[in-house]
Write a protein that binds this DNA or RNA. Structure first.
Length: 634
DNA sequence: TCCTATCGCGCG
DNA sequence: AAAGCGCGCGATAGGA
């Protein structure tokens, strides 16, 4: 049974919808301030909460200490069902675009991203887009401030829509924007949409796969909201020490840190440049280096490293420290972890393949050299787990390639390295060859060692290699490809097809043809990788969904003991604090560490079974119990 | 002045 | 163009 949650005037509507999509009973309307109590009471009935966007509702519940077990995120589900080939011949997919196709993800409340959206420059005398007082509930400041829809909301309101016109190049961010008429937020009827989605699942060619995918995607949205709520423990004092050791004391605004200033002098001296040369200006620096005869074509690190000149050493050091200073320096600390927690802002489903993206704070790019600042609370510890060689294992299982799966299977309980296993089959000579060969197969590498090794891999593991080759050819033909659970790739944009067509013109020049060919191959590499990366993302979603359920079931520390620094409902319980594609960090009371490690492993096994049934493929983890994230070597 | 493109590098 | 996939971000350059 689902309960659909929606805004009804100043109150909140709760309406039951059966698993077949039939409305069950009348809608109840409760006061906004009473929602948390209502939800907490209904949790015991194993209801699945359905709502337009998890970030519109769940943060306020968490703020009231209420955790929910299951949800159905209508925005995320709609996007999957709209695009999937499994649901292509359903009413939902065959209907024209609706307001649900135009929803942009709602940022988590209270963070810098939400603040930036709430603070648009208002001209004096212009009407505010929404009245904060009208919808504000005591505990829902973030939601009330920026993200609640109103019946009269229109273009330019808080319900922003994406404006991109689709895909011309692989690699664009996931969006569903089109430039037809905006239908208006008033058209969002969550109960009707849920009914339509459940019907689309039932009518699809893979209801079981889609049901699992949407459950996992929605569980991911819950987990992301919970991680934002709990935050990653962050020791600002340690971070500051790292910065001071590397850069010198924090400079006044506008000034370079002492170490960078010193290196800038040495760089100028080494190439006889004037004191006005700004090493942050690539064109100027490159020109000055050319004048000094350094012989650099660009300023890329790997290229500079090949050169022999006195400027290289200080320049490389400068670039490293500059990166630390600009990306994760004091400004970052002030903005993203001012109070002992880094509240990362994930964008669930933000990548076309189904991976998560993040916005602001660079949660998915946290450099290794600042991870020392991630320290567990007193009496608590981290359990850090990452899936070893996830993508090649996923490929083996996807292709049902028994030999490749066997190469990654653990023998007598030993934690195996799949690349070593591939070497052991005799297919290739070294672990390095196995690794670059597999990466090349999954990414579409055509040169160097990876291309040399590919034929050997194709001989040893024909089914796995054939799967990625077929995915590449489908993409080159402009077709969709689909992951294990039913997430389909986007189609290339109109200009892609136009370029393809123009290559067939009688008078097409060689340059046009070569551009078309290069574009074709590029899209093929995208679809080749899509099936693997996308299915790996599905494995990770199932993993994280299982972990959050299992952690909750572990219960809490004794009532006598001191709670941790995490906010309720996690102050006495192990909880997820970080997720990075194939890696999780759990923050747990020290006494729970071993139990958590065991559950994280069990969750990985469960994820493998959910995706691949009894196909004999292993997904081993490396698990570390540690006080500091930096001590978990990946 | 604002907006976008480019470079380069962090992560998986 | 490192060698192929997927991202976010900050600084500077350059066009409008």
């Amino acid at each position: 049974m689902h309960t659909v949650v929606s805004a009804e005037g100043s109150g909140i509507g709760l309406r039951s919808v059966s698993d077949s999509g039939a409305p069950a009973g009348e809608q109840r309307v409760v006061e906004a301030s009473g929602l948390a109590r209502e939800v907490a009471a209904d949790e015991a009935t194993h209801v699945r909460w359905a709502w337009d966007d998890t970030n519109n509702w769940y943060p306020a519940l968490l703020a009231d200490g209420v955790r929910v077990d299951r949800a159905h995120d209508l925005r995320l589900a709609h996007a999957v069902l709209r695009a999937s080939v499994l649901s292509a011949r359903t009413a939902l997919a065959e209907a024209g675009l609706t307001a649900w196709d135009r929803l942009a993800p709602v940022p988590p409340p209270g963070g810098p991203t939400a603040a930036a959206l709430v603070r648009p420059d208002r001209h004096p005398g212009s009407e505010p887009l929404f009245d904060l007082g009208e919808v504000a509930a005591p505990t829902t400041s973030g939601r009330a401030a920026g993200n609640r829809r109103r019946p009269d909301a229109g273009p330019g309101s808080e319900r922003r829509t994406d404006e991109s016109d689709g895909y011309d190049q692989p690699g664009g961010r996931h969006d569903h924007g089109r430039d037809d008429e905006y239908l208006g937020a008033g058209d969002l009827d969550p109960a009707a949409e849920l009914t339509a989605q459940l019907l689309a699942i039932k009518d699809s060619t893979g209801p079981g796969r889609l049901r699992l995918l949407l459950a996992a995607e929605s569980a991911g949205a819950l987990a992301a909201a919970e991680m934002h709520h709990a935050g990653l423990p962050w020791r600002g004092d340690i971070h500051d020490q790292i910065l001071t050791d590397a850069l010198g004391p924090r400079p006044r605004p506008g000034a370079r840190p002492a170490k960078l200033e010193d290196l800038a002098h040495r760089i100028r001296a080494a190439i006889d440049a004037p004191p006005t040369l700004n090493p942050d200006s690539h064109p100027d620096l490159l020109r000055a280096m050319e004048y000094a005869g350094v012989g650099a074509r660009s300023l890329r690190k790997w290229e500079l490293e090949k050169l022999d000149h006195p400027v290289i050493a200080p320049l490389l050091e400068y670039k490293g420290l500059y990166r630390l200073y600009t990306a994760n320096g004091w400004n970052w600390l002030d903005t993203w972890a001012p109070d002992g927690r880094f509240r990362m802002e994930y964008v669930v489903g933000g990548v076309v393949t189904g991976r998560w993206a993040s916005t602001g704070g660079g949660a998915l790019q946290l450099p290794h050299n600042v991870r020392r600042a991630v320290v567990a609370d007193p009496g608590w510890t981290f359990v850090v787990a990452d899936a070893a060689q996830l993508e090649p294992r996923v490929l083996a299982a996807l292709a049902r390639d028994e030999r490749m799966a066997a190469a990654g299977r653990s023998k007598d309980g030993a934690n195996t390295d799949m690349y070593a296993g591939i070497v052991a089959t005799g297919a290739v000579d070294s672990r390095e060859h196995a690794k670059v060969g597999m990466l090349g197969a999954m990414y579409g590498g055509t040169t160097g060692v990876s291309a040399q090794v590919l034929p050997r891999l194709a001989r040893a593991f024909p089914q796995a290699i054939d799967l990625v080759e077929r995915a590449a050819r489908a993409g080159e033909r402009g077709e969709k490809v689909t992951t294990r659970l039913g997430r389909s790739s986007p189609l290339p944009g109109e200009s892609w097809a136009a370029t393809q067509g123009s290559a067939f013109d009688e008078d097409a020049g060689a340059d046009v043809q070569s551009r078309a060919r290069s574009q074709t191959r590029s899209w093929g590499r995208f679809t080749r990788n899509f099936v693997v990366q996308g299915t790996a993302a599905e494995w990770a979603l199932c993993w994280i969904a299982s972990i959050r359920r299992r952690l909750w079931a572990l219960g809490e520390i004794d009532t006598g003991s001191t709670p941790g620094l995490a906010p309720a409902p996690f102050d006495r319980r192990p909880h997820l604090v970080f997720f990075l594609h194939d890696e999780v960090v759990v923050h747990a009371p020290a006494a729970f560490a071993e139990a958590v490690a065991q559950e994280v492993r069990a969750a990985a096994e469960e994820a493998g079974r959910l995706l691949f049934g009894d196909f004999p493929v292993d997904f081993p983890l490396s698990v570390a119990v540690t006080e500091s994230y930096a001590d978990a070597k990946d």
